[in-house]
Design a protein around this nucleic acid. Structure first.
Lengths: 353, 353
DNA sequence: ATGACATAGGAGAGCGCTCTCCTTACCGCG
DNA sequence: CGCGGTAAGGAGAGCGCTCTCCTATGTCAT
């Protein structure tokens, strides 16, 4: 009788409430609440009686009612802030299908799941949606937010920082502001790539960067340039792409056209690097013999590419997990000060360089 | 003054409630509620007065309070049912990083987002989690669930069907049951692959299938086999993989070992197909000249592969979107009968066959 | 002018829960 | 034997909202 689980639930329509459990257990609603939430002052005997009553009635707590009074929901949001283009379906599918998104989700889940915290996916593009998000955060409909901001001029980070709500960005904000974040030492990653290319003996090195206004992209380029400068390379020809396969292919063609003798190239992410590979093949250049290619991210595309990409590994799952931890700490103690965590990238040598 | 937006909110700590708005507008709480929810019987003049008061107070509705009475949350869950292995982090990262997951999310979002419905990500592995999910669904903490079931013996589909809650599966349930679903005509996909291989003139055809107990995988194999049988191929040597790159590579080696003269192979998903490509390269077999390879899914891996994979395109985003629509229809009208939608796959010819 | 009928808006009862306050019972001590 | 102290559990006030009921005010036909 004590095992059960969900047994005789829903005789009619109404689901059992605390009151029903209380009646069965012969105690007051307050006591049942105490037992269920594991709070002080409960006679061990009653404790058992109550749990039996819970099992017998098939009681399940009503979250809405609970949140109404506690102002907590046990839900954090993964917020994708993507400017106004919310009818741009291609963007959406591309973004979600990108391993980047999945790795973040996986990392967050690894922390959230054991604690029974739900992850809500939110896309916000309009000021209106921003306001609603901040409202949810303040009202306690959302305990916190992990922010994935897609463009530099995004006003949402500022909004969240000003509102003083629990939020953590993945990737540092474009402008400094009091908002916690986790990030990769992108500049160190760029330096790693530079070091590897130099060590290989490359003399004429180029770069395909990402969009210039994205902090991560900017840091990768800067790190790469500075490291090369230390080795005497004062000028690095470079073309900017937008992180897609096609833009990488195009950028590579352009780079090649202007700089025929290139023997090494750093590409700011793997997807563009696979595009670059295609352009190189088309130009009858052998990789890595004629030209070495170093990518960034160590995404699944790196492994599938031919030759497999030498790339900079991004511990995105760990970063997201740490972000979740920061967020939860902040939720538990709102006075916690703004924190950041920077992760070190590593070089993964494969066939392309 | 009428523009505003979020203006003088939070003077102290307490957030503005309906009551506050009512006071400012000089009407009753009920009227404000009517206006906000756009219900009948509102004097157009008051209408405006109320909206001004909303703007002035910076009022934002409290979802918990609302759900408590409406028993609706405007949230549906994407449920990933993954057996007991919830500490198996490698699984998680692999699953989430797989484009499959992202494409589903993207498809769901394209329908959910315009309606302002949140998507909650839920992983359930234990009976306990199953019970909690059903509870949330019944209590109205979750308006509905989209189910991604990862293994054939999963008891969750049955549970949801029996509970009669709003739920839609992506991919048909392993056993027939009264549960709505959207699916791909996997058998037709297999037939498409068979047809293409035959049309190419392949004589000795093999197959790398997925796990036998997964319905999608089973249907692909069956469709492929039956179509070939119609062309006189009574026996198709085949090896089963588990949908990963490595398992594909291994399966290809094994297949090759037992059937040296193979000139065509159907691989049940693209990821395994890229593995197969690696094994073929290692065996010094040219694709498609020596042996043609047809994959399945048209994932991003298909494009990145060398040669690019000829594959069967899976309109996963559309399927997920349709699933979301079915679900919402069911949420609006609980008496709606169980429905299913089957999508047709298409052949995408690239370099590998 | 009078009554039948619609229609706008207010009053107030909950939704299911948590948590503060208070009563009651019990302990040990002077 | 009476008193302060403590611990256990009940009573009940809300949390912010929706929605049913009801009243006040028109509007029109008789």
């Amino acid at each position: 009788m004590s095992s059960g689980g969900t047994s005789n639930a829903t005789p009619g329509q109404r689901l059992p409430t605390l009151e029903d459990v209380a009646a069965v257990a012969g105690v007051s609603r307050a006591t049942v609440s105490r037992v269920i939430n594991g709070i002080r002052n409960v006679d061990p005997q009653l404790h058992e009686v109550v749990w039996n009553a819970v099992a017998q009635t098939g009681y399940l707590p009503n979250r809405a009612a609970r949140s109404l009074v506690t102002r907590r929901t046990g839900t954090v949001a993964l917020v994708v802030s993507d400017s106004e283009t919310h009818d741009d379906d291609p963007f959406m599918s591309r973004f979600f299908a990108d391993p980047y998104f999945g790795r973040v989700v996986g990392g967050l889940m690894s922390v959230l799941r054991p604690k029974g915290i739900q992850l809500a996916l939110l896309m916000v593009g309009t000021p209106d949606a921003h306001a609603r998000l901040v409202g949810d955060l303040r009202q306690g409909q959302l305990d916190g937010a992990v922010l994935l901001s897609m463009y530099a001029e995004d006003t949402l980070p500022r909004l969240l920082a000003d509102a003083g709500v629990a939020a953590v960005m993945i990737g540092r904000p474009a402008r400094p502001m009091p908002l916690s974040y986790v990030d990769l030492a992108n500049d160190a990653g760029g330096a790693l790539a530079a070091g590897h290319l130099v060590a290989r003996g490359c003399q004429r090195i180029g770069m395909i960067s990402g969009p210039v206004d994205v902090p991560a992209s900017h840091d990768r380029s800067t790190g790469f340039r500075q490291a090369l400068a230390r080795h005497g390379h004062a000028y690095i020809p470079s073309v900017a792409g937008n992180f897609t396969h096609d833009s990488g292919e195009q950028a590579m063609r352009q780079l090649l056209a202007g700089n025929p003798g290139l023997d090494g190239v750093f590409v700011a992410n793997d997807l563009m690097a696979t595009g670059a590979l295609a352009a190189l093949r088309e130009a009858d250049l052998r990789v890595p013999d004629d030209i070495a290619v170093v990518g960034f991210d160590d995404s699944s595309a790196a492994l599938a590419a031919r030759p497999p990409l030498t790339t900079i590994r991004h511990p995105l799952e760990d970063m997201a997990a740490q972000g979740a931890r920061l967020l939860l700490a902040r939720v538990d103690d709102p006075d916690l000060r703004v924190t950041s965590a920077i992760f070190e990238p590593t070089l993964v040598v494969r066939g392309s360089a």
